[in-house]
């Protein structure tokens, strides 16, 4: 399981996370929603130390790190438990789709080249990219790039996949194909934390939804509870704005 206790993060004098406590069970799909600047992406990025939090304890699948006194080995261990899918895909621009997936395996898991490429071929087929293995990122659409990004994250077989607004940079007609791949990942029972603006997706797929604002977790519950019967004023306002915008 994942257990985050009292996580704090600030940039200079601006506090972004003001004491976050979250628990995620094995195989649970957690969606994090909230307005821009609420700290939801920062929270995700603190989990694999792309951002260094100042205070708090992060525990992922047995790897427990106090962020005030961590070692290099702690960071490596947390990163081995997590896979990340970025908003802007962040594929290695100098590598084709196949090598985007196989190189990390080869380098960080010391898997032989042939075997790593076989894993990559299989995963790319799974995300619907058979025949695109040799394309470089520039020759792939946004949706295709993001699916490579998901395959790359899955290849390392992490305990949890962190999705950082995976569809926010996509053209509307490409969102669907990425969401479908994410649903497949969910069906495999992998633990997922998804920062998203896709309320429909959160509603349909998440086991639990967290609403964040101003560096706090304001409210959480099942999608049913949160979307149909929000308790907090801030949540109500956010959902109302969202619905007015999208109807």
């Amino acid at each position: 399981m994942i257990k985050i206790q009292n996580l704090h993060k600030s940039y200079g004098n601006t506090a972004i996370l003001k004491g976050i406590d979250v628990e995620v069970k094995d195989g649970e799909v957690l969606a994090i929603i909230g307005p821009s600047g609420s700290g939801k992406s920062t929270l995700l990025r603190c989990l694999n130390f792309l951002e260094k939090a100042e205070k708090g304890i992060i525990e992922i699948d047995g790897a427990k790190v106090n962020v005030e006194q961590y070692t290099k080995a702690d960071v490596v261990q947390l990163r081995s438990k997590t896979g990340m899918v970025f908003q802007n895909y962040n594929l290695f621009k100098n590598k084709n789709a196949l090598h985007n997936v196989s190189e990390p395996l080869r380098l960080t898991k010391k898997m032989p080249k042939k075997q790593a490429e076989q894993v990559a071929y299989d995963l790319l087929a799974e995300v619907g990219l058979k025949g695109k293995e040799l394309n470089y990122p520039v020759a792939l659409s946004g949706g295709q790039q993001q699916r490579v990004g998901i395959a790359r994250a899955l290849a390392l077989n992490p305990y949890v996949v962190l999705f950082d607004e995976p569809t926010s940079s996509l053209d509307p007609e490409l969102v669907e194909e990425v969401l479908n791949v994410m649903k497949d990942v969910m069906k495999q029972g992998r633990t997922m934390i998804v920062v998203t603006h896709e309320m429909e997706f959160a509603k349909e797929v998440a086991d639990r939804v967290i609403f964040m604002a101003d560096g706090y977790i304001v409210e959480q519950g099942t999608p049913e509870e949160l979307f149909t019967n929000p308790q907090n004023e801030r949540t109500k306002r956010f959902l109302k704005n969202y619905l007015t915008l999208h109807n």
Binding site: L50, R79, G83, F86, N88, K95, T108
Partner: peptide, 25 residues
Amino acid sequence: KSQFEACEAVNMTKWQGLRTVILPQ
């Protein structure tokens, strides 16, 4: 900067990231 982050997220060492992703670019 995203290229550096991608290397970190997949747990490459600094040198591995430099050699395979950053330096070629």
